[in-house]
C-alpha cells in the first residue's frame, strides 16, 4: 500500500430549491414573529415541534396548531469543534437537545449566550436538566436561525 498513483481533484456543486409545503411554511413564518409553533396529534395527544403535517406514529393529519413556549429543559448537548466542507455554522458551537415546555418531543437548536471558546468553561456552565430560553435574531427571515440560540436562564 506504500505506492500512490495520480489523483484527480474534482467537485460537484448543485443548486436546489426545496419546497417547505403548507405546514413548514407556517412554522417558519411564525419564527419571523418570534413564535415557535407545534402541532398536536388528535390521537396520541402529543405536541410535536417543529410543527408536523401528520403524526409520525399515528399517521393522522395534525392540524391543531399550538404556540409553544420559548423556554425548555436541556436534555443533552454536544460541543463541536471541528470543520467540514460547507459547514453551515462556524465552530466551535454547542448543539442542544431541548424539551420545550408543554411539548412531547425534543427540539434541536444551538445553545449560546456565553463564551464558547474554551470547552472546560462550557462544561462548567452546561448541565443536562437546566432551563434554557430562546434568544431571537434582530433580523428574521423565516429560517431556523431566526432563533440565534437558546441561552441558560
Amino acid at each position: 500500500m506504500a505506492r500512490e498513483y495520480r489523483t484527480l481533484k474534482t467537485e460537484v456543486r448543485l443548486p436546489y430549491e426545496v419546497a417547505y409545503g403548507a405546514t413548514w411554511t407556517r412554522f417558519f413564518e411564525g419564527l419571523k414573529d418570534k413564535k415557535i409553533y407545534g402541532t398536536r396529534c388528535k390521537e396520541c395527544k402529543r405536541v410535536l415541534v417543529p410543527a408536523r403535517s401528520f403524526c409520525p406514529r399515528c399517521f393522522v393529519t395534525t392540524d391543531e396548531w399550538v404556540e409553544v413556549k420559548e423556554e425548555g429543559t436541556l436534555v443533552a448537548w454536544c460541543y463541536t469543534n471541528y470543520r467540514y466542507f460547507g459547514m453551515p455554522i462556524e465552530p466551535p458551537f454547542v448543539t442542544g437537545l431541548i424539551r420545550l415546555d408543554g411539548t412531547d418531543v425534543n427540539f434541536l437548536h444551538l445553545i449560546g449566550g456565553f463564551d464558547l471558546s474554551n470547552f472546560e468553561e462550557v462544561s462548567k456552565t452546561l448541565r443536562n436538566g437546566i432551563k434554557v430560553k430562546a434568544v431571537w435574531s434582530e433580523e428574521r427571515r423565516g429560517h431556523i436561525l431566526d432563533i440565534r440560540y437558546f441561552e441558560p436562564v
Binding site: 413548514w24 454536544c78 467540514y84 459547514m87 453551515p88 458551537f93 437537545l97 434541536l108
Partner: peptide, 29 residues
C-alpha cells in the same frame, strides 16, 4: 460533510455536525 446531507435541509442539518455529535448526546442521555 456527506453525513450532514443525510439530514433534512430545514432543521437538523444546521445542528448535527456529522456523526460524533449525535453519539455524544446519546451517550449523555
Amino acid at each position: 460533510a456527506t453525513m450532514t446531507t443525510v439530514l433534512d435541509p430545514f432543521y437538523q442539518r444546521y445542528f448535527l455536525a456529522g456523526a460524533p455529535g449525535v453519539f455524544s448526546m446519546q451517550s449523555q442521555l
